[in-house]
Design a protein around this nucleic acid. Structure first.
Length: 555
RNA sequence: GCGCCUGUAGCUCAGCUGGAUAGAGCAACGGACUUCUAAUCCGUAGGUCGGGGGUUCGAAUCCCUUCAGGCGUGCCA
């Protein structure tokens, strides 16, 4: 509809210029938007105000010139008026809204899809938690956002790959091995001191128990380094399997699990460091090797190889991100926790050093999740190991509620996640509010079939002319806005836009439902309303699908 | 100190990327089930968009400045 009105305006502009009503043909882009207040029409444009300077005329004069040249061939516009400082308001003919419903039905699951990605390859890397412990709620938020972003991008024509980067080498894995080994020795009544910097959680003890059950005291006879190495590998792979399961239960799967270790095994890390040294981007100082990240705007240079000869996490990340682009992705998106924001400049630097544009690399920084229970903080300290895991949360509140709540905020704002509230099946909990729309409509359709024998609703222009209630037009207007919402949410990588869209649509529907009956004694009206309501159902389903939330037929 | 993020109704947050009189939900108060699911709806009340400057026809939105909170600022990951 916006586009249609834009065309009317653009044609009017040209005509006005030819007539001499306008002095310049230098037209700014026509923008049409929905006024918030009903009395200001269905759509309005600010074009006259934007043109005032160029045309050297007052906005209202320009508006008049435009209005006198508007042609309205399809009788879309019922009324036009100039308002305020120079807005042109358009009142749309009720009948003109109806054809949009047909588009929704015809395109069905594809309604809202687009091709802004044009098949470009894009990678979304998310979660990527170290396999040193189970996923906690914070990872859950990253998972929900990353997955939704990937869904939305794919829906908008990108060729999306989901990847999980597994940090399976480096010091934290050794620490993991040591932690497990020490707990293992404890099981044989050996007196050990368990260091503070080891992993404290109960799961470490469980892993030790498993090793004991499978290997007896064999490890005690081994050389300690070997034993730690064994524990490390066993623990990491067991934990990773657990992570994979927890994510699957959360409805998330990856196209690829990428091992950090493989970057060393293939020699990629060595190669890239050598290349960068040759280019002078990496240099030696104080016995260590430094990357000149300051050349790319970082606040100081960063160590790649430590004085002790070991590489840092950054070294493998340089190789990793370069490799991503070599795989053919034109854009790479990393979803990180906000506590990693200090790493953005250095990774961006490495991407640029590899010859790619900094805009090809984006980081979505997920802010903290405050886990609450009845308004009071639920413990989440990693140190004591008593954090609430993602699995705990999903088991307690369910997948749909968890995912939806993670997506009710812009990812840049901290999120309060109240377990008690998420479990409630009341209107305090927005998931049910939206899902309930889908269930209610399913129920109407079922009843329509049972009592009136209506098994199929289709486009019927005559019947649809009966859809004239303000609530009905309001719903159609909202439905029409869906593709735009999806597009914006893809471009900005902000899934919460869809969440809010769905809540607003749900609100309009519930309101309508309470005021008007869909199944009436008038067959035409019933058919028209079923057609409308079915369109709502399709869009609720489409939106929830993008968010990774189910659309139940019954609740 | 420096960097990033956030300050919008009592609370939790939206605000379509500069538009007209700033919106929801919760909490409070008052109403609606012999009806397609009351997991719902209707109404009332609630605001100096942290403060101060600037940019322009027009600012919650952009710029500067200031205050407050969170996070980061390792040859840890």
């Amino acid at each position: 509809m916006k586009r249609k009105v834009e065309n009317l305006i653009n044609n009017a502009l040209e005509k006005a210029y030819k007539n001499g009503d306008l002095l310049s043909s230098n037209f700014p882009e026509t923008e049409v938007e929905e006024p918030k207040i009903g009395s200001q029409g269905d759509l309005s444009t600010n074009i006259a105000m934007k043109m005032a300077k160029i045309q050297k005329m007052s906005p209202r004069k320009i508006a008049e010139a435009i209005l006198s040249n508007v042609e309205n061939p399809d009788n879309i516009v019922a009324k036009m008026e100039i308002a305020g400082p120079g807005f042109i308001n358009f009142f749309i003919n009720t009948l003109a809204w109806h054809p949009f419903l047909k588009k929704i039905h015809d395109e069905d699951t594809g309604y809202g899809a687009s091709n802004i990605g044009q098949g470009r390859r894009i990678q979304v890397e998310f979660v990527s938690a170290n396999p040193t412990g189970p996923l906690h709620v914070g990872h859950g938020r990253g998972a929900a956002v990353g997955d939704a972003v990937a869904n939305i991008l794919a829906y908008c024509g990108y060729d999306v790959q989901r990847e999980y980067y597994v940090n399976d080498s480096g010091r934290q894995i050794r620490t993991l091995g040591l932690s497990v080994f020490l707990r293992y020795r404890e099981l044989f009544d050996q007196n050990i001191i368990f260091p503070d910097d080891c992993y404290q959680g109960e799961y470490i003890k469980d892993l030790a128990e498993t090793i004991k059950a499978e290997n007896g005291r064999k490890l005690l006879e081994k050389d300690e380094e070997q034993a730690v190495e064994f524990c490390a590998r066993f623990a990491a792979s067991t934990i990773l399997k657990g992570i994979e399961t927890d994510l699957a239960d959360f409805g998330i799967s990856f196209d690829r699990w990428y091992n950090e270790q493989s970057l060393f095994d293939s020699g990629r890390v060595d190669t890239i460091i050598r290349e960068l040294k040759d280019k002078g981007i990496i240099y030696e100082k104080d016995g260590a090797n430094w990357f000149r990240t300051t050349d790319y705007g970082d606040e100081k240079d960063r160590v790649v190889i430590r004085e002790n000869g070991l590489t840092t996490y950054f070294a493998s990340d340089i190789a990793y991100h370069k490799e991503k682009f070599e795989r053919g992705f034109t854009r790479v998106i990393d979803v990180w926790g906000a506590d990693h924001h200090g790493y953005i400049p250095r990774i961006t630097a490495s991407v640029q050093a590899a010859g790619y544009d900094k805009n090809q690399f984006n980081v979505i920084l997920i802010q903290l999740v405050n886990l609450l229970r009845g308004g009071k903080p639920a413990s989440m300290s990693t140190r004591s190991g008593e954090f609430v895991t993602l699995k705990n949360v999903v088991d307690e509140v369910g997948r749909d509620a968890a995912r939806f709540i993670f997506l009710t905020r812009h990812y840049e704002s901290p999120l309060d996640f109240d377990l008690e509230l998420a479990r409630k099946q009341t209107n305090e909990n927005p998931v049910y509010y939206v899902q309930y729309v889908h269930a209610r409509i399913s129920s109407i359709l079922k009843k329509g079939k049972k009592e009136k024998g209506i098994t199929h609703v289709s486009w019927n222009e005559k019947a649809l002319s009966g859809l004239t209630e303000p609530e009905e037009i309001q719903i159609i207007r909202q439905l029409i806005g869906y593709p735009e919402t999806v597009k914006a949410s893809a471009e900005l990588m902000e899934p919460h836009r869809i969440t809010y869209f769905l809540m607003n649509l749900a609100s309009s529907f519930h309101s309508y439902y309470n005021k008007h009956k869909v199944l009436t004694d008038d067959p035409d009206l019933t058919e028209a309303r079923l057609y409308l309501v079915l369109a709502v159902k399709k869009i609720i389903r489409n939106g929830l699908t993008l968010l990774g939330v189910s659309a139940p037929d019954k609740m």
